[in-house]
C-alpha cells in the first residue's frame, strides 16, 4: 500500500520535475499552429460524439421516432393492419373532446374517475406514508425488518398481486370474511368490493395507495434520517412537544420529498391502468374506467376497429393534463412553502 502511494507520488513528482512547460518546449518540439489546435479540438469533439452516439441513436429511435410517430398517428385513422393511414386532421381530438356522441360520454366518465384517482391516491399516499415513516424512524429495534415488511408491497406489486387482490375482494373473499368475523357483517359487500359500483373505485384507490406507500415511506424515512438533529433539539429547548416539532419543524423540512411523492403519484395515477385492466376492466359498468385504460382499450381491445389514432390522441391529451397538473402542483407547493 505504502509502496503504491510512494510510486504514485514519485511518478507525479517526476512528471512535475521532468515535463517542461509549454514555453520551455518551444525550441525542441514542433510548435502547434492555430490549425493544429483546431484539429486537436475537433478530434476531441469527435471522440466525444462517438461516445455519446449510442445513447443519441437509442434516444433517436426509442424516443424521438416514437414520439413523432405517435403524434402523427393522433391525426390519423388506422387499425394497425391497413397498409396506409387515413388522415383525419383534428377530428380524433374533437371526437374525444365532445364531438362524438360515441366517444365523448366514455371519455367524460373516464376523466371524472381519473380526477378522483389523481386527487385521492397522492394525498392518501402522503397521509399514510409520512406517519408510517415517522413511526419507523422512532423504532429502535427491528427497524431493518420492519422496513422490509413495509416495502413488501412494492417488490411484489405486479399482475399476480392484482389477481390476489381480486380474490381477497370477492364476495366470499378475505375482506368480507374478516368483517364477518369481527362482528362487522353489515359492512360486507355481498357482490364483492369490486362488484359494487359504489365501492369499486374507492377500493381501487386503496389498492393503488397500498402499492404506492412503500416508496413514499422510504423517501420520507431517508429524509428523516438525514435531518439535522440540532434543529429538533432547538425546538425542544424552546418547549415544543413531539406534535409541535413534527408539524412545524419536520413536516416543512420534508416539503421537497412531499413534492416528489405527489408528482410521482400524480403521474402514476394519470397514466397507470394495469391494475384497472386486470382487476375491473373499467367495471362494473363504467364505474372504474380511467383515461389510461380507455387509451389502452382504444389501441388494443377494440377488435380491429381503426381506433389507434384515437388512442394516440387520448394519450397526448393525457400528457397535456399531466403537464398542467404538475405545473399546478408545483405552484401550490411553492405558495405553501
Amino acid at each position: 500500500m505504502t509502496a503504491g502511494i510512494g510510486t504514485a507520488t514519485a511518478a507525479g513528482a517526476g512528471k512535475g520535475a521532468g515535463s517542461p512547460s509549454t514555453a520551455e518546449r518551444g525550441g525542441g518540439a514542433p510548435r502547434r499552429g492555430p490549425f493544429g489546435a483546431l484539429r486537436e479540438k475537433r478530434k476531441q469533439a469527435a471522440w466525444g460524439y462517438l461516445f455519446v452516439a449510442p445513447a443519441i441513436a437509442l434516444f433517436a429511435v426509442m424516443g424521438v421516432y416514437t414520439i413523432v410517430y405517435g403524434f402523427s398517428l393522433s391525426f390519423a385513422q388506422w387499425n394497425g393492419f391497413w397498409p396506409e393511414w387515413n388522415w383525419r386532421g383534428f377530428r380524433n381530438y374533437t371526437d374525444l373532446l365532445g364531438g362524438s356522441p360515441t366517444y365523448w360520454p366514455i371519455v367524460k366518465k373516464a376523466a371524472v374517475n381519473t380526477l378522483w384517482v389523481v386527487i385521492a391516491v397522492p394525498l392518501l399516499t402522503v397521509l399514510v406514508a409520512f406517519p408510517l415513516a415517522l413511526v419507523l424512524n422512532q423504532v429502535k429495534r427491528f427497524q431493518g425488518v420492519l422496513r422490509s415488511v413495509y416495502f413488501v408491497p412494492y417488490v411484489t406489486t405486479g399482475i399476480a398481486v392484482y389477481f390476489a387482490w381480486n380474490y381477497i375482494l370477492e364476495p366470499n373473499g378475505a375482506v368480507n370474511l374478516l368483517l364477518k368475523t369481527v362482528g362487522l357483517g353489515s359492512l360486507q359487500q355481498p357482490q364483492g368490493w369490486l362488484g359494487n359500483p359504489d365501492t369499486a373505485l374507492a377500493t381501487m384507490i386503496v389498492v393503488m395507495v397500498w402499492s404506492a406507500v412503500p416508496v413514499a415511506m422510504l423517501l420520507y424515512l431517508t429524509g428523516l434520517q438525514s435531518l439535522d438533529s440540532s434543529l429538533l433539539e432547538a425546538a425542544q429547548i424552546d418547549g415544543a412537544g413531539w406534535l409541535r416539532s413534527t408539524t412545524t419543524v419536520v413536516w416543512p423540512l420534508m416539503k421537497p420529498i412531499t413534492v416528489v411523492v405527489l408528482l410521482l403519484n400524480v403521474r402514476d395515477s394519470l397514466q397507470g391502468f394495469q391494475s384497472f385492466l386486470i382487476m375491473t376492466n373499467g367495471g362494473p359498468g363504467d364505474s372504474t374506467s380511467v383515461l389510461g385504460l380507455e387509451t389502452y382499450r382504444l389501441a388494443f381491445l377494440s377488435e380491429l376497429s381503426p381506433t389507434l389514432g384515437l388512442a394516440s390522441a387520448l394519450g397526448w391529451l393525457l400528457f397535456l393534463a399531466a403537464l398542467v397538473v404538475a405545473f399546478i402542483n408545483q405552484r401550490v407547493m411553492r405558495r405553501m412553502g
Partner: peptide
C-alpha cells in the same frame, strides 16, 4: 351469482 359483474 354474487360478483358475476366482476368476472371475465
Amino acid at each position: 351469482m354474487p360478483g358475476t359483474q366482476s368476472k371475465g
